[in-house]
Write a protein that binds this DNA or RNA. Structure first.
Lengths: 209, 209
DNA sequence: ACTTTTGCACTGACCAGTCAGTTCAAAAGA
DNA sequence: TCTTTTGAACTGACTGGTCAGTGCAAAAGT
């Protein structure tokens, strides 16, 4: 095949179809789960024929795996950029963490379905796409771990913090707060949610005022 | 007839069968998801015939819903007890939160599959058991919110904290950290994990030493 | 004592429907 | 011309749910 699909974008007809299929699949799978979502549904939602799905993807699972890679790629890039920008601007590591919290919220705000689907699948075992999921998870968490480690090295963070566990806890904090926000209080603003999480992140919960 | 159905617990044959079905279903659904898990599998794992499943539960969904209620009931009781004990012992609200974090970890340590399954389903929409899930979620989160609110009233916590959102974030912190622990570093001790989360909870991340 | 009845709990073969994946000739793009 | 999409028919495996029947222990009958 090797279609003339150049570097970045993806402007071929095929790429557009794949994008439509991603979008259809992501919402359906987020709502119903992978197994409960049929290929017929995905095709219908995307406005293409079933045969097209199989022309573009080897199987339902492969479509899903590529969707995962695609989505987490976006998130990771966004987190990395937030951290780097803070560094360039001479911010502290706490500032970097805070910027990443915001980047995470922005991502979830834009792609709530993807987030939902990702969380639902992440801790499952014995699934064919398990390895894909692991790789992709590590990419995202590594960005947070990196900032924490740098903070420890520079003395900004205590040497006693447990980097991987703290990173997981921070990710969880943002993830669950954001999903709750989207699910149960969708009218609230991103800034509002961000402010609440910042407070928690900086330990400004205890103590009056 | 009036079967000699004893008083409290569940010593009848039926209750024992239901328990076996819960246990079989919880691990299978945690691993594979609801739709990907067949009733035949559940029956086989529980060591009963398929018909028995339908003798005890109206449908696969009903089995799942009752399982959810059962599990979250255990969690809620445990959280409440942790908070109350701290209060009796004259601890602060931060102590109560910390005790609840531990209670959460103990629960997840004991029932990792249930936790997994719960997280995977919580933010889905358009599912038949959605309402059950909401009720059950509220029960658990309410305990955390209660402690936060009391802390605000007593002046221990800032009046500016966003109670529902902070509660969600705290739950997320524990949930994700614990699932990561169980999935990727199962050899670590509960105390170890608890210590790391305590540090984060009390804002002792920043600052050396 | 011992026979019969009752009905709960359970069984497992069976059925009707569903779904992933295939095939392919023809149409639409580019 | 060469690539991509269409759309409908088809297959074969699998699944939720059903149901007539079994086993058995306690209750009733004698």
């Amino acid at each position: 095949m090797e279609s003339s699909n150049a570097a970045s974008g993806g402007s071929t007809r095929r790429e557009a179809t794949r994008q439509k299929l991603y979008e259809a699949a992501v919402t359906l799978i987020a709502e119903q789960g992978f197994s409960a979502t049929t290929v017929d549904e995905i095709a219908e939602r995307a406005g293409v024929a079933k045969g097209t799905v199989y022309y573009n993807f080897a199987s339902k699972s492969v479509l899903f795996e590529e969707l995962l890679r695609h989505g987490v790629g976006l998130l990771t890039a966004s987190l990395r950029e937030a951290a780097e920008k803070t560094a360039r601007d001479g911010g502290t590591k706490v500032d970097a963490l805070d910027a990443m919290v915001r980047a995470g919220l922005v991502f979830i705000d834009r792609y709530p379905s993807f987030t939902q689907l990702y969380v639902a699948e992440l801790w499952r075992t014995n699934r064919t796409w398990q390895s894909t999921l692991m790789v992709v998870r590590q990419q995202a968490v590594a960005v947070v771990e990196g900032v924490l480690r740098e903070g420890v090295e520079s003395g900004e963070f205590s040497e006693e913090i447990d980097v991987p566990l703290t990173a997981a806890a921070l990710v969880g904090m943002v993830l669950v707060a954001a999903l709750d926000w989207k699910s149960f209080q969708p009218e609230r603003s991103l800034d509002d949610v961000h402010a609440a999480l910042s407070r928690l992140l900086q330990g400004r919960v205890s103590g009056r005022r």
